[in-house]
Amino acid sequence: MEEHIYKKIFSKYRGSKRDSLIPLLQEIQHELGFLSKDSVARVGGLLNLPTSKIYGVATFYNQFRFQPYGKYHIQVCRGTACHVKGSANVLSALEAMLNIKAGETTRDGMFSIEVVACIGACGLAPVISINGEFHANLVPSDIEKIIGSYKNRKTLEE
């Protein structure tokens, strides 16, 4: 299945030079959800670029992630309204609680954090969305309860 996806994408880029790097990475992420070591190595082979260079370029942009989404994917709005209402602190609280940075996924694969520009829910600022469910008017101390409720869901489901 993955093999098929690579084939499809790479066929378009055969003979390309390094200036195709970004669109190529974007397409792979679009299809596979993130950039794995394997995909970076394959791209390196195609464009004749070292993986360190590709990773370096990719980490320059916020859009690329290198781990699959968690079971619960948390989008933190960092738009202007949310920023004014303290979304930076909400993000820090999330990062501290889950012990990961934005763009990463927890080791157990349960949670991932992504920073997004504006969700378009400025009236609810600061706001986060977890698998599409909105949590509005947050203060950092809310985070523990919210994350806790998702963790409970996990145990319930099991």
């Binding site: 070292p50 360190s52 260079k53 990773y55 370096g56 980490t59 320059f60």
Partner: peptide
Amino acid sequence: EEIQNVSAIDFVGR
């Protein structure tokens, strides 16, 4: 990169 042709390391992040 330029002398050893290894490119084991690079700038990461921004």
